[in-house]
Write a protein that binds this DNA or RNA. Sequence first.
DNA 1: AACGTTGGCGTCAACGTTGACGTAACCGCT
DNA 2: AGCGGTTACGTCAACGTTGACGCCAACGTT
Lengths: 332, 332
Amino acid sequence: MPREVTLRDVATQVGVSPRTVSRVVNDEGGFSEATRQKVLKAVEQLGYQPNMLARGLITRRSGTVGLVGGGMTDPFFPALAEGIQRKAREAGRTMFFASTDSDPARQADVLKSLWSHAVDGVIVFPALDTIDQLTGYARRGLPVVIVDDQAEAPNLACVSFDLEAGAAMATRHLLDTGLQRLGMIASSLSPPRRRNRERGFLRAMRESGHRASPPEVLRMLPTVEGGEAGMHQLLDRHPEIDGIFAYNDLVAIGAMRAAKSQGRRVPDDIAVVGCDDIDMSSLVTPALTTIRLDRPLLSEEVTQALHDLIEAPGSPRRPVMIPVELVIREST
Amino acid sequence: MPREVTLRDVATQVGVSPRTVSRVVNDEGGFSEATRQKVLKAVEQLGYQPNMLARGLITRRSGTVGLVGGGMTDPFFPALAEGIQRKAREAGRTMFFASTDSDPARQADVLKSLWSHAVDGVIVFPALDTIDQLTGYARRGLPVVIVDDQAEAPNLACVSFDLEAGAAMATRHLLDTGLQRLGMIASSLSPPRRRNRERGFLRAMRESGHRASPPEVLRMLPTVEGGEAGMHQLLDRHPEIDGIFAYNDLVAIGAMRAAKSQGRRVPDDIAVVGCDDIDMSSLVTPALTTIRLDRPLLSEEVTQALHDLIEAPGSPRRPVMIPVELVIREST
DNA sequence: AACGTTGGCGTCAACGTTGACGTAACCGCT
DNA sequence: AGCGGTTACGTCAACGTTGACGCCAACGTT
């Protein structure tokens, strides 16, 4: 098995010191054009690749970032992961990926492991109530970008979608079509602080002068199955419900299935609005009305924020809030 | 910013040498129970985490593996990525993720970068014709597991789904329902050697005694849009076609959309079979008949193969072929 | 009592790279 | 000629860890 090619190999081949090769490779300056040529030729010829472990050990920059999320089962996340990975690579960083299954303990493990690997920073879709965990790492010097939650700490930035506004928009849209009795299927994985979809929904209901019995909010797992179960429960308890705002598109799709299985037509008997605008949403029948989240923009903002934190540690970053948009299709 | 806690810090706190702390942390033996207790206590107290860069530099094991795939746009891949990541973590390894956009040049970049980061091995869903690239790395000493392609080299293993058999099964199923004129929408991203779905389709057609004009095989991008375009083309050229085998479920879903938009009912006027059994497939209407791929099993086999290659470099690994299964739903 | 063996630990060097610093050669200037 | 500055290198140590080896005390054996 051929040993790895090192600076020394290149150096002896060219007839200079390793330090000089290092200078050329990193383009530090302090070498003549002639040696530059020779070194680069030898680098090419021997197939030299810098060893990031050694480099990272001394520069304290490993050239890696971690992406920590709940999992890949919701198609919303992979699409984001891809965008973030692309941006990271453009910035010369390689991405670790780790999923937590939305379990705080696993998230702790994952962060420990990433810290061990000396990542330059992490992007986290936090599991349940783990803000303290994350601010802890940030205080220990790890740049952390939190998606869809708020916190203050050095080395920490937050980027969120404005889902409270989005939820309010969706709710107003439902009310505008003349519906009277709305319900919401929310997520059991969101801690109170992060229930901005619920807040938006309830706010819009209040503002619309809704004064019947308080609107029904159910919390289920944010999956198709959760949506199905939620819809069944909702229809059992309140058969008069004529509109649903779902936590995300998976839940909405599940809800539509449940409605159909009970013989209720969407949108004639009951309207459904989702959230996320995953690819599937335009393909199901009826096509789902939903809140579109600008994923490329989030990728951009998140990597930018992380980059800034890495380059200027501790500098304050104001939280970023990304506006969202309602896409009206056939389910309302 | 607090400096990282090192072996030395633990050592001085306990009053032993760093080497002893290292022995305890790695459970090498050669220490008394008393020191073990003291060391572990100090480790806990100081929050010591081994520095994988330093460790990897000397042991030549970084504790990382790379996952290289085309991208996250096909939901088939994320589901796999998650499984593989989970298995890798269970084996104590952290996963780098990198997507190639099915572009050989990008794949080359990505591999270079992973090599630089001293990954212990890589799992690759190869882009187009990149087997030589991959065997090159394998020969240089990098354990490589290739998914869905075949090659022979030291440090290289292959794991595939038996899609030729799957495609034949699907085709026979279509023929068994009495259909006469079948077409296939294949992928333009598969090099000839990897066109096993096409081979299975054509073989089943031949074996069935099909003797009309040769069945139509179109190659499109393996996306919903590709499937739509493919179906339109196929119906334009051969309006008599009554059954389609699609490269994957996305293509199949696109094909169904196109059929509907032309006023053809699925499955009454035209039947469609997909491949992969992504989550979406059971949710669209009509629910898609498709070839189910056992993703957990693939994750298992792939990580196992990589693990073996890492532990016993150069040892020969026979290629693994995973059987597949036809799931009959409503689209046929 | 002399001897080998073992357990428990320390010492030293090395992994591949870069930061800090040194130095010789050469330039232009007085 | 002497001086200061610059250019193009080289030297050395360090990052945090582990492999190789060495040492000493305690123990059992002859």
